[in-house]
Design a binder for these strands. Structure first.
Length: 913
RNA sequence: GCGGAGGUUGCCGAGCCAGGUCAAAGGCGACAGACUCAAGAUCUGUUUCCGUAGGGGUUCGCCGGUUCGAAUCCGGCCCUCCGCACCA
């Protein structure tokens, strides 16, 4: 069935409002959410998987009799939309191209430039794409209640977020302090991944170096190191031969670093006074003291020193650093390496052994030296132990020693933190990116003990699918530390206690599902009052006392009561469904904010983590051009086919590959399903009541399996049972000469009902064309209503099939094409004897039947005493077998006395002639 | 390195938690047959090896162990993927 049929039903659903539930204390509720999409663009097949899965669950729960709330809203907080808009204003070619391509799907060619023009205003991007997403979602048949739709930028919502932050603050969970960020010098602004050239492909992170001070007579040198635990092994210093070094004052001291480093220093430290250039010879002729030990060392030049990395000064530990070791060799210096770390593991690699192993000859072998450095760094960090020459740090593991030495250096003012980017980076507009330390940064302090404890309790009380994510969730809660929660720019809510700051986009999106329960009412209050006072928010969302809102207008009080009732009925969220990358951020914040701020009863109840969706085996990304939009999905493939594919092709938890062959296979099955109903009126002359009974019994088994699996969120398993297996059974009925349409007639309504959560449009169409008036999407059906399965009927049919399989196997093994087949079913005597032997009463057997024992031992696993009348079954199906093998089949009862080879219960004796 | 997931028969992918009924579901692909002028679709069968009688051998990353019995439980090893963050 095509898109036009789907549109028809979507329209009818919307008009009838069947997905717009009201609180009803007489009915059990089910509340499912998926994180709101970010509205900088349209969504693609990959995004669709989670929303589709959620919709299937929502529809299933409705079928099972729940009052289901499945809402949706839109996210627009943060910087990306601003950044895109800004790039459009600037005429950035790549961005324009991206948006033109996206718009081409939705707009007429002549309207595209008009739209792009509007996108210079960020809000227009958000509004435009939320509209598209609503349409795309409707086109996929999602049973979303749109009445509670809102965005993270809405003013009424900002009132809620401010309330949330005031509460966090009053609990002492908001902190203020310094924080390093990636920063563009030219733009004088913090930069995000989107702003950095290739930032999405090659991530730039902030690395924390330890700046180590080497005191000299006229000035001190500062070297930056990632491995301060090696200071006891320092033999000398390195500077770059072609670099300008600069002298400056900071905190009473006089220091020298490279010109580039000084620029970075100025963004990380206050009160720097530049004194002027220093000659290389001045540095080389000076003597410096190592920190802690105060040994005298000298500085030398070496080509490997990069003025723009760290401070442009490197301290040299040839005993543990390959660069230093090679540099000393290259320079022909007579400096003996000092070993300060030994290894505890089996791998006993050293600088020397690695140089040999990787065949490193000079400083020119950069790649090899990098590899060796990498290996040694990891090895010594995790396996290293400080040797006896490390003062009070002797004997410590290197991780502990690093922290200890770092602190010691800081205390003695021989060191400080110096931030550096993990790689050299520039913004898309080409200006240099460095690390700057911002003061007055706001944090949410997720490290507080009571908070972590409360959060673990929530996690452990929740439902997880797959279950192993519970651990990941607990880990994520443990990992969380202080998180910057506000930025200088971006769309969103201003911090209530410091309006210079905008609440960052993940931090403003933790409690919002609660808004879904009563959005229209709460925003009405906002419109009446122009704000939402805390008393009302407390009353509605946090079990506040009615007393505290009595002073408001009765209209407001009535609304607040209504909002409260809705929230009490619907909240907490029964299932939140999303992809794995959300665990360590959004989901953790979501759980923790609930744990801290809302009553226990309203805590999240369950999380389902959906796997990735690939397109033809590859990760989907817009830049790769393999992102198929949801619009295209609904027009080119149809919603039902996509939904069926999502349901049936992979378990929720595993990777799903959207590829042509698989789609074609699912499509064929889907078409044969529809085909059956199209031909329902067709007549088949002969009926075969045995297969039909069998079919009905099997169908009921499939239904039971369906409900059991769906209740456990095994959507795939459930639909394999009720879709693939029922289709196969129908085919089987056909081959066995049964009347498919009589079978179909008996199961039709039930079959459609269980299929409707996945292919709702198709089912509605068939449902209405077969004389039903209401919507199938509003029908209920449960396991209690499933009919009986006659076990004996199924056993009979299995017996027949086993006999056929045996016949085939014999033919295959012997290569005989028989003219006639004789089948002998077992005699009553043998049957009784077999029953004895199955019970292990061999001795009680009459003597004349004892010769059966050896044969029984051999074939006992094939003996089946459950089959009623084998002779009757085989006789009844003689024609079937004859048509199957194209020869005459004789069925007879075996003689009384055992022969050389005997017929057994469930295993007739077969002879090919 | 730490944490998590996993390695199943040509491919994808169930089974493993609750050991036997597992040569191991389902799909894809391949092969053969039916239908067809033909192709496609559809249907039937085969798809680890051996086998002139429904049987047997060898398989579920590798090596051991527990058990009457292990794809399933335990220990060790090898390998792959994901996360290790402040980014939506």
């Amino acid at each position: 069935m095509g898109p036009s049929v789907e549109r028809k039903w979507q329209k009818k659903w919307l008009e009838a409002g069947i997905f717009e539930p009201e609180p009803d204390s007489g009915r059990k509720k089910f509340f499912i959410t998926v994180p709101w999409p970010y509205t900088n663009s349209s969504l693609h097949v990959g995004h669709g998987r989670t929303y589709t899965t959620a919709d299937i669950i929502a529809r299933y729960k409705r079928l099972s009799g729940y009052n289901v709330l499945f809402p949706m809203a839109f996210h627009q907080s943060g910087t990306p939309i601003l950044a895109f808009s800004e790039r459009i204003r600037r005429g950035d070619k790549q961005t324009l191209q991206l948006y033109r391509d996206t718009l081409r799907e939705y707009e007429k060619e002549e309207d595209i430039e008009k739209r792009i023009e509007q996108f210079k205003e960020p809000q227009n991007i958000a509004t435009y794409f939320s509209e598209r997403i609503v349409k795309d979602f409707n086109n996929l048949g999602y049973s979303i209640d749109w009445r509670s739709r809102f965005t993270s930028g809405d003013l009424f919502y900002q009132e809620f977020v401010k309330w949330q932050f005031r509460k966090l603050n009053s609990l002492g969970l908001i902190k203020n302090g310094e924080y390093p960020v990636l920063y563009s010098i030219n733009d004088r602004n913090a930069v995000g991944e989107d702003d950095i050239s290739d930032g999405d492909i090659d991530k730039v992170t902030i690395e924390e170096f330890t700046g180590v001070i080497f005191k000299g007579k006229d000035f001190s040198l500062i070297a930056a190191s990632l491995r301060p635990e090696t200071v006891y092994g320092i033999t000398n210093l390195w500077i770059s031969p072609d670099c300008s070094y600069v002298r400056f004052r900071m905190n009473e001291g006089t220091y020298v670093v490279s010109e580039e480093a000084l620029e970075k220093f100025q963004y990380q430290h206050q009160g720097i006074e530049i004194l002027g250039p220093v000659k290389e010879s001045e540095i080389l002729s000076s003597v410096f003291e190592t920190p802690l030990e105060h040994r005298k060392i000298k500085a030398y030049t070496s080509s490997f020193v990069d003025p723009d990395n760290g401070t442009g000064v490197v301290y040299s530990v040839p005993g543990h650093a390959v660069w230093d070791y090679m540099a000393i060799k290259d320079a022909g210096l007579k400096l003996e390496p000092i070993k300060v770390l030994s290894l505890t593991g089996t791998d006993q690699s050293t600088v020397e052994s690695l140089v040999k192993e990787l065949d490193i000859h000079s400083l020119g072998d950069t790649d090899k030296i990098k590899e060796a450095t990498q290996r040694l760094y990891k090895l010594e960090f995790y396996d290293g132990k400080m040797m006896e020459n490390n003062g009070k740090f002797s004997g410590l593991g290197s991780e502990k020693a690093r922290d200890g030495i770092k602190n010691e250096l800081f205390q003695k003012e021989e060191g400080f933190i110096f931030y550096e980017t993990s790689r050299k980076a520039q913004t898309r507009s080409g200006s240099k990116v460095i690390v700057a330390v911002l003061s007055n940064q706001w944090f949410i302090d997720y490290s507080v003990d009571w908070w972590k404890k409360a959060s673990h309790e929530v996690v452990n009380s929740m439902f997880f699918y797959p279950e192993f994510y519970r651990n990941a969730m607990n880990d994520a809660v443990d990992w969380l530390r202080e998180r910057p929660c506000a930025r200088r720019r971006g769309i969103g809510t201003k911090l209530p206690f410091d309006d210079e700051w905008v609440i960052e986009s993940l931090s403003d999106s933790t409690l919002y599902p609660i808004i879904y329960t009563n959005q229209p009412t709460i925003s009405e209050i906002f419109h009446l009052l122009g704000k939402i006072p805390d008393e009302i928010l407390e009353y509605v969302y946090n079990d506040g006392q009615e007393e505290s809102i009595k002073h408001f207008d009765s209209e407001v009080v009535q609304l607040a009561k209504k909002a409260r009732i809705a929230k009490d009925y619907w909240y907490g969220v029964d299932i939140r469904l999303t992809a794995a990358p959300h665990i360590s951020n959004h989901l953790a914040f979501y759980i923790m904010n609930h744990a801290a701020l809302l009553p226990k009863r309203d805590n999240p109840k369950g999380i389902i983590i959906s796997g990735l969706l690939l397109a033809n085996g590859a990760k989907i990304s817009k830049s790769k051009g393999n992102a198929i939009s949801l619009l295209k999905i609904s027009t080119k493939f149809t919603a039902d086919l996509y939904r069926l594919f999502v349901a049936v092709s992979a378990d929720i938890s595993s990777v799903l590959d959207w590829n042509e062959t698989e789609i074609a296979a699912v499509r064929r099955k889907y078409e044969s399903f529809v085909e059956y109903f199209n031909n329902e009126e067709a007549k088949v002359q002969s009926g075969n009541s045995q297969v039909e009974d069998w079919f009905l019994s099997k169908f009921n088994l499939h239904l039971r399996e369906y409900f059991t699996r769906m209740d456990a969120f095994d959507i795939r398993g459930a639909y394999i049972s009720v879709f693939y297996e029922v289709l196969n059974d129908l085919k089987y009925v056909e081959n066995r000469g049964g009347n498919v349409y009589s079978c179909l007639g008996k199961i039709r309504d039930q079959w459609l009902k269980v299929m409707a959560p996945v292919i709702p449009h198709t089912c509605e169409e068939i449902w209405s064309s077969t004389g039903h008036t209401g919507f199938i999407s509003a029908e209920e059906f449960s396991i209690a209503q499933v009919g009986r399965s006659e076990e004996s009927v199924i056993i009979t049919e299995n017996y027949l099939q086993q006999t056929v399989t045996d016949l085939r196997e014999i033919m295959k093994a012997t290569g005989i094409s028989p003219k006639t087949i004789d089948i002998e079913v077992c005699s009553n005597e043998v049957r009784e004897a077999a029953a004895e032997m199955v019970e292990n009463r061999l001795k009680d057997l009459p003597n004349n039947l004892k010769p059966l024992i050896p044969e029984f031992m051999k074939i006992r696993k094939n003996v089946n005493l459950e089959i009623a009348d084998e002779f009757e079954i085989l006789t009844r199906n003689r024609e079937y077998m004859e048509s199957l093998f194209g020869c005459k089949v004789n069925v007879s009862r075996a003689k009384v006395y055992p022969g050389k080879k005997n017929a057994w219960p469930g295993r007739p004796l077969i002879k090919l002639n």
